[in-house]
Computed example of a mutant assay.
Amino acid sequence: MSAKKTPLYDEHVKLNGKIVEYAGWLMPVEYEGLVAEHEAVRNDCGLFDVSHMGEITIKGKDATKFVDYLMTNDISTMTDNQVIYTLMCNDNGGVVDDLLVYRYDENYLYLVVNAANTDKDFEWILKHKKGFDVLVENISESVGEVALQGPKAQKVLQKLTDYDLDKIKFFHFIDDITVAGVKAMVSRTGYTGEDGFEIYTDSEDIAKVWGEILKSGEEENIKPAGLGCRDTLRFEASLPLYGHEFNDEITPLEAGFKYFVKLDKQSDFIGKEVLKKQLEEGLKRKLVGFEMIDRGIPREGYEVYKDGEKIGHVTTGYHSPTLKKNIGNALIKAEYTEIGTPIDIMIRNKPCKAQVISKKFLNKKK
């Protein structure tokens, strides 16, 4: 099956974006360069095409009850126009996907899921809807989405809308406002650790919004930003990536996301008993942050050793553009996870010294 193109594909080509295949989509990995784009988002602002993400709507009188049954977080506590981060687990407690839930009202919830998992998620949701009065629709094809991220994001976006963006609190959204002359839904969310917005429109309107945001941000040093810095930014901000920090075999508890697993919520959810048992018995492996002491950049999949024994693997590793250090995340045996523990990362078949540090690489408010 050939790779899909987002509605902004031609814009990326015009901007000389370096196109790669990602999650079945042709996407820009970088334009000017990963570090320049990363620094633009940390210091000014950057604009990402995220139209490859999946959107699934759940409507009906059991919408909240059904989504609460699918998710680890407590969906029943959400208020209208709130956004919540959550995980959707399988029967073994592994992660089907991590996603955002947008609540319009108790009968209408809007899920934003990972591009690579959209079809899988949709099938999983349909498989479990028996007994719930809901209508489930995959509307991904009709939705375009961009993410404007960075300390100057609000200043840039405010020029394009009459709506007072101060009114949108962190992890909240407003629908049916006009951005660059186009009807849009805008949320104060993102995947970089910075303030910013995600803007959703009909797919045929997103190119206009993209172009107008880049124009509006010229004075603020805006840059179009690719998948490369999206990954380094989220990683520095301790935000997980599906397929790395967790997957169908790694539970949210092992990955350190217990905060989003509400084992005490009133309703049952898929995987709850397994996760409860895992917590009671104690975790056998945990996700840690680490910093290289020896030279070398750790990469996903590299093996982690302690005193000659293999104890786990690297889930994400980079040279951090902000911290100017080689750092990573690793899933390792629980007994070696104390901060300061020396470990070895196998880089090109050679053990390189590293030590366990906090996963909170950056101290950011958001």
Rank of each mutant, 00 (worst) to 15 (best):
K5Q: 14
P7K: 00
Y9D: 03
G17E: 02
V20C: 11
M27W: 10
M27Y: 11
V35L: 10
V50T: 09
M53W: 07
G60P: 05
L70G: 03
L70P: 00
S76V: 08
T77Q: 12
Y85D: 06
C89N: 12
D97Y: 08
Y108V: 06
Y110H: 14
T118S: 04
K130V: 11
G131L: 10
A147F: 03
Q154S: 11
T161H: 01
D162W: 05
D164I: 09
I174W: 04
V179K: 02
A180C: 04
G181S: 10
V182H: 07
G196M: 10
E198W: 04
E198I: 02
Y200M: 12
T201E: 00
S203N: 13
I206R: 06
E218N: 08
E220P: 01
E245M: 07
F246Y: 15
P252K: 08
V261H: 00
D268K: 09
K272F: 00
K277A: 14
L279T: 07
E280N: 14
E281P: 09
L283Q: 08
V288R: 08
F290P: 08
M292T: 08
I297M: 11
Y305I: 03
K310S: 13
L323P: 06
K325A: 06
L331Q: 01
I332Q: 02
Y336L: 02
I345K: 01
F361R: 06
K366S: 10
K366P: 00
